[in-house]
Design a binder for these strands. Structure first.
Lengths: 110, 110
DNA sequence: CTGTATCCCCTGGGATACTG
DNA sequence: CAGTATCCCAGGGGATACAG
């Protein structure tokens, strides 16, 4: 789908963080390393299907590392790479914008 | 779709700028007021269908104003509102991130 | 020039159920 | 616990054609 997009830097960001949940997952990981179940708790409403999908993409893009610990019960931890950490200013800018626009069109959106 | 998302500020941003083209349209309008045809030229590959769809949403959210001039041929100009202008830092942050990560996983993405 | 109308495809995302 | 497997839906986006 992204093949038709202009090849600018912003476009690469948009492909990586495609979909509403992607950014929210990154946002949680900016708090530090988290396990799969911790991400699910931190993101009420997300399905395991979606969460796995986003994490796999993040791994492929190199913004997240996946550490598996052979324990019982099993433990898997996800951590942002330095490249992923560098997304922090972007997320902060989003938050700043949102806080500066308290009332935004709700159901009026098409 | 967004009904299940957490109600945080970032989520509102994500709903507004849903889809890869949305952000790119805003990016062009940050250069100043543009006509429909100018946006199409600046965004090679976008269909009129998609462009109209995004612009209508932006109007509904109040980040873009639509000015129609009853001329022949007709002229319609789109301009960012102050709220829309405030998105500039976010786009800049995205660009900074992208420029700091020259090589990002291409076809390896799922 | 500035759209609108159809029709179609793809992918994000949800629900549910089921393993190692 | 950490997923995977299916099936399904909604909406973004493209292509084409047509209208004011």
């Amino acid at each position: 789908m992204s093949g038709k997009l202009p090849e600018c830097g912003v476009a690469r960001f948009l492909v990586l963080l495609e979909g509403p949940w992607a950014t929210l997952v990154v946002r949680e990981l900016l708090h530090g390393t988290l396990r799969f179940s911790q991400l699910r708790e931190a993101l009420p409403g997300i399905s395991p299907h979606t969460l796995t999908s986003r994490l796999r993409r993040f791994e492929a893009f190199g913004i997240v590392t996946r550490a598996v610990y052979a324990e019982v019960p099993p433990r898997v931890e996800y951590t942002l790479t330095p490249v992923g950490e560098r997304l922090r200013p972007v997320l902060e800018a989003m938050a700043v914008w949102a806080s500066s626009v308290p009332q935004l069109a709700p159901a009026s959106a098409i």
